[in-house]
Amino acid sequence: MAGYLSETDFVMVEEGFSTRDLLEELTMGASQATTGEATAFFVADLGAVVRKHFCFLKCLPRVRPFYAVKCNSSLGVLKVLAELGLGFSCANKIASVISSALDLYFPEGCGVDIFAKLGRYYVTSAFTLAVSIIAKKEVLLDQPGREEETGSAPKTIVYQLDEGIYGIFNSVLFDNTCPTPVLQKKPSTEQPLYSSSLWGPAADGCDCVAEGLWLPQLHVGDWLVFENMGAYTVGMGSLFRGIQTCRITYAMSRVAWKALREQPLPAEQDEDAEGMCKPLSCGWEITDTLCVGPVFTPASIM
């Protein structure tokens, strides 16, 4: 190993214990805290980053990958990518097409270096966000005739979160997404579902995170979990909390950690092979230059 990442940088997840279990422990601890207000936080599975890198090396061994730091500049991600030699992986459905095209148009020995510079692939699925409900209100819907049919006036429940579209949930604005929360406790089939919407802390009437949801009755202090939140979210804390950013708890399975430690180090290059190492072009914060090592795909982590 190059020595960028150590076991003190993350929580080691043992066999049979998932990062979701860790997230539940952390939310429970935050809810039981007697001082301070519980704020949103991330749980990041660094093992997911490791797995995706090895997958890339297997599918596109001729492509030299570079990671776009602006996608997610959290220290844990940068350290694990430094250990891996920095990288990006394409989706499996297009990897074979890319490889064939490279062999056809740029055969080995033609003098062309091939690079890939992306970021979402590495970090999107590795990060899970937990956000607590800070306020709620019920709003009656103006639907004539419905009250006579159901015996009660139709309503929708508006939940307010401490993060909104001007912070972590900026993908609603820029990617036109509708984040769907995962409830920590699965509701029973007997629990009624209500028309619900999620809003951020802004008072401008535009800070809508998601609407058209059907959720059981939730309460202030309950936690909502959002998966696949690793890209362009870290460092985007709510503008209403100033420059404060969300806490990140890193985790990695013992299997992934073993595979990371056992990967071969990049071979030392002589002066004549100086071109084999390229400086990172997107603002690397840990090391000046990185080389991509030999293809290594541990069967235990694929």
Rank of each mutant, 00 (worst) to 15 (best):
A210W: 06
G36K: 09
C55E: 15
F115T: 07
S96G: 13
S18N: 08
E108F: 06
L86Q: 14
Q160Y: 11
L57H: 14
V131H: 00
C246V: 08
A30Q: 14
R247T: 05
H53N: 13
T156V: 15
S238F: 07
A40Y: 10
C277Y: 05
L193V: 09
D142M: 06
G237V: 05
F240Y: 14
E274W: 12
A101G: 11
F54C: 00
G205I: 07
V182H: 11
S18P: 00
G235K: 01
L265D: 12
G29I: 03
C208K: 13
K117G: 10
P201D: 07
L213N: 01
V295I: 11
G16Y: 12
Q191L: 09
E227M: 06
P264M: 02
L75C: 04
L140V: 15
I165P: 08
R62L: 08
D222V: 00
D222N: 10
A210N: 15
K185I: 09
P201G: 06
G85F: 02
V234A: 02
A135C: 04
S253Q: 07
C206S: 14
I98Q: 06
Y105G: 09
T180E: 15
V13H: 11
E274V: 13
P187S: 04
T289F: 11
S132E: 08
D204G: 05
A33E: 15
S238W: 04
T128S: 12
M229I: 00
N92I: 12
V255Q: 12
E7M: 07
D272V: 10
L57D: 13
Y159H: 00
E163N: 02
E274Y: 12
T233L: 04
I134W: 05
Q143S: 13
Y122W: 06
L224F: 04
R146G: 03
C110R: 02
L104Y: 14
A38W: 08
F41N: 00
S195H: 11
G47W: 09
G235N: 00
H219W: 02
F169M: 02
L215R: 00
Q160K: 10
M252P: 04
G76K: 02
S6T: 14
A33Q: 15
I98W: 07
Q32F: 11
C90G: 08
G3W: 04
E163G: 02
E268T: 12
L213T: 04
T34I: 11
F17T: 14
L224A: 02
